[in-house]
């Protein structure tokens, strides 16, 4: 579980995040949604420690991320996995070497054991055939899957995903969403996904935090998002024609277009 309390962040006097507090549940896919420029990327960067908040607390299972001593912070970092928007695979390494990298850096396992673990992670994401290929030789979807395999190599407790579906076709997006969802349940991780893809929201949004103008404007689950009375959230959710039609169908009494699992 990750808890954030009164997070504030400003750049050159401009408030980007304003007093944000929430809890990201363990074993669930927690989604941060919002328009471009709403502050969700800044919040994600604060959560993973790439930016420091002006004030507030970040608690990883009651461990304060900001005040943690260096050694414990390093240990905590090995419990974190991250899936970047552009995958961020190391260009100079093959897919297998990319997945083995965190194992080589942070475990004392022998090479054979590290390879076995990497193979296991790559099989889990259905990428066993591409182990000797370089990132430049595989597709965007495969890169995301390789990045997921690297992120779970150390059995992390926390998984962060920044726009996991960006640049992917709808079908591949669905595969990546389901993979992240299944892995979250399997590893009992606290997963936080930064997205503005409404398909992902309706597919895997077990807990959703909507950020608007640097403030938490709404919090709930995917089954409540369609019936929310928040104007800002409705403007965001029903911005697309598809979702407007879904809303109209539901208002007209048709069966819900999205089945809630």
């Amino acid at each position: 579980m990750i808890e954030i309390k009164n997070i504030n962040k400003s750049f050159e006097g401009k408030n980007v995040l304003n007093n944000i507090s929430t809890v990201f549940d363990k074993g669930k896919t927690n989604l941060i949604i919002g328009r471009s420029g709403s502050g969700k990327t800044v919040l994600m960067k604060i959560l993973i420690g790439l930016l420091r908040p002006d004030s507030g607390e970040i608690l990883y299972d009651n461990r304060n991320f900001i005040t943690l001593p260096r050694r414990e912070l390093k240990k905590l970092r090995t419990e974190m996995g991250m899936l970047f928007q552009g995958s961020a695979l190391f260009d100079s390494m093959t897919v297998l070497e990319n997945v083995m990298f965190p194992l080589s850096m942070f475990t004392k396992e022998r090479k054979k054991e590290r390879e076995e673990r990497a193979h296991c992670c790559l099989e889990r994401v259905n990428l066993a055939d591409a182990i000797h290929l370089y990132p430049s030789e595989i597709s965007g979807g495969m890169m995301k899957r390789a990045a997921i395999a690297r992120a779970i190599a150390l059995n992390p407790k926390y998984l962060f995903c920044d726009e996991p579906n960006s640049g992917l076709d709808p079908k591949t997006s669905l595969i990546i969403d389901e993979l992240i969802h299944d892995i979250t349940a399997e590893y009992n991780m606290t997963t936080i996904i930064n997205t503005h893809d409404m398909n992902s929201v309706m597919n895997i949004g077990e807990k959703i935090i909507f950020i608007s103008d640097g403030q938490k404007a709404w919090e709930g689950s995917k089954d409540r998002i369609m019936t929310s009375s928040s104007k800002e959230l409705n403007d965001f959710v029903f911005a697309s024609d598809l979702f407007k039609r879904v809303k109209a169908m539901e208002n007209a009494g048709s069966p819900p277009a999205f089945q809630v699992n």
Binding site: I48, G49, L50, L73, K74, R77, T78, M80, M82, F84, Q85, G86, A88, L89, F90, D91, F101, P102, M105, F106, F160
Partner: peptide
Amino acid sequence: TMRVTEQIDALEIMG
């Protein structure tokens, strides 16, 4: 290139 493609960030997050 590693910086703009977030590979350096990835290293930092890993610790």
